[in-house]
Design a protein around this nucleic acid. Structure first.
Length: 471
RNA sequence: GUGACUAUCGUUCAACGGUUAGGACUGCGGUUUGUGGUACCGCUAAUCUGGGUUCGAUUCCCAGUAGUCACCCCA
């Protein structure tokens, strides 16, 4: 990675921006006192913020392929696009994602607006989606209501590769149906997308966490079980026992693996309905022959999930796992926000990670249509005519490359050659005077002078001949 | 939030406690006048920021910032 340049020409004295921040402080949401900026921000003009990044033109063909695949899949499965604000009232996330989750406690981008409102950049899309669902009375629409969305989400965590403070997600969600077949269909859709993107070695991990009540029961049981043998756990897991006991089941230490071998299973703590739901889901998945494994440790970092949760993972040859996306049911969420009780299921794909994975596995990016004709001009009069000629050709369906800013014919031809065009149209002083143009076949090197009327046909003829030769 | 490693032209890789910080790729221009490849020539362009040690720092030390990795967590 390139080191970012730092602008330091306009260094001013270390004047502070004033102390009026205090007056805005509200106490309904606890915020840590913001530390003073650690750098002279005037020097940081030319550096992206930590965890933020530019997606440059070179990378766009990968993103374009992703966008296209998402558009296709959403159409095939009947999802309608919705775009949501990136900023919402902070409370929306406290209520949905949940206080106590890392996403809210540690990673939420919190702000006070000038008007004094407590707002947050969205750390995920489901909350906003549910808000919109209720706000616009979508409950009256015929079920299931299928919505998808693409956009950036924000989490203030520590960046590394495939992990950014601003990253892009695609979300697919269905409202209004309880049937586990929708869970299966959701996973099927997720699989369809990554398949269309040419990703291999994809695996789903599925689990059911039942209701919040049954999950709490399970955690209690697990803690009770492990507490008894606490000192046999590794240091790390001893802390996990308090903070997040289910994580212990994921530990790589031998002693912890052995200890947890006979530990209680989350699936045994499901209520009857959830268990039945899960059983049906698995049957559907088997029927679809989707690559999945049951991962009883899979929890996900959001409070609103009920019953089904899943993750899409890519496995590389070293057996390393990358999570590309995940989702699950959230049957209680709409109701808990004050809407009518509405079951729902959805998932998010991490687009940055998908692009990363495409590069890693050398998937072909989307190919833009390339211009096959170059327009070169020479001299003032020709230059004047060139813009008009360009638009005439373009209207006739000929994609043109040019370098109007250049003077010499030689340098223009060099560009034409670099672009790999098959035809170059040249107008010079002479051609401009008698309304003709030179049509040069870049492959054979031959050229002829034609009138403007015949220009389009002449160019197309060469392109066609080349195409025939290729076949 | 914790720890570790790293930081030189747009990209990539050199170099040194001391002269104009070097190469490759890319870009721009040229090798006579209105014709592209290759070749040859030229030009542009960098030591992340702030302090310290030193006669002298890009090099050594400290801090900041950023990136990468592991943890935490997640997409």
């Amino acid at each position: 990675m390139a080191q970012k340049k730092v602008f330091h020409g306009a260094k001013k004295s270390g004047e502070k921006k004033g102390n009026d921040k205090k007056s805005v402080a509200k106490k309904n949401i606890a915020v840590k006192k913001a530390p003073a900026p650690s750098v002279n921000q005037e020097e940081m003009l030319l550096q992206t913020l930590r965890g933020m990044r530019d997606i440059l033109p070179d990378e766009q063909p990968y993103w374009e392929r992703v966008r296209k695949a998402l558009a296709h899949a959403s159409q095939e499965y009947g999802f309608r696009r919705i775009d949501l604000p990136t900023v919402e009232y902070a409370h929306l996330y406290l209520r949905t994602v949940g206080e106590g989750t890392d996403i809210v406690d540690k990673e939420l981008y919190l702000f006070n607006t000038r008007g004094g409102d407590r707002v947050a950049l969205r750390p995920e899309m489901t909350a906003g989606l549910c808000r919109a669902y209720i706000e616009h009375g979508m409950g009256v629409l015929s079920k299931p209501i299928k919505l998808f969305s693409i956009g950036p989400v924000f989490r203030y965590d520590r960046p590394q590769e495939g992990r950014y403070r601003e990253h892009w997600q695609a979300n697919f969600d269905m409202f209004g149906e309880n049937d586990p077949i929708l869970d299966a269909q959701t996973i099927q859709l997720a699989y369809r997308v990554v398949q269309q993107l040419g990703l291999k070695n994809i695996e789903f991990q599925v689990n059911s966490i039942g209701t919040p009540e049954s999950r709490r029961e399970y955690e209690k049981a697990l803690t009770r079980y492990l507490e008894a043998q606490k000192n046999k756990l590794c240091q790390n897991c001893r802390e996990r026992l308090v903070r997040n006991p289910m994580r212990i089941l994921d530990c790589k230490e031998d002693k912890c693996i052995q200890l947890t071998f006979h530990a209680p299973q989350s699936l045994d703590y499901l209520d009857l309905e959830s268990r039945d739901h899960f059983k049906h889901l698995l049957e559907y998945l088997d029927e679809l022959e989707l690559p999945y494994t049951i991962n009883t440790r899979l929890v996900r970092g959001l409070d609103y999930y009920t019953k089904t949760v899943f993750e899409i993972r890519s496995t590389d040859k070293d057996g390393k796992n990358y999570s590309l996306g995940g989702g699950g049911r959230y049957d209680r969420l709409i109701e808990s926000l004050g809407g009518e009780a509405t079951p729902a299921i959805g998932f998010a794909l991490g687009l940055d990670r998908i692009v990363l994975e495409m590069k890693r596995t050398q998937v072909k990016p989307y190919q833009e249509a390339r211009p096959r004709v170059f327009l070169a001009q020479l001299g003032d009069m020709a230059k004047k005519k060139s813009l008009k000629l360009f638009s005439e050709l373009e209207k006739n369906g000929i994609l043109i490359a040019e370098s109007f800013g250049r003077g010499s014919l030689k340098s223009q031809l060099r560009v034409a050659n670099r672009l790999g065009v098959e035809v170059t149209i040249i107008i010079g002083q002479k051609e401009a005077l008698d309304d003709t143009a030179i049509v040069k076949d870049m492959v054979s090197g031959t050229q002829e002078t034609v009138t403007h009327e015949r220009l389009v046909d002449a160019a197309k003829k060469i392109l066609k001949t080349n195409q025939d030769l290729r076949v």
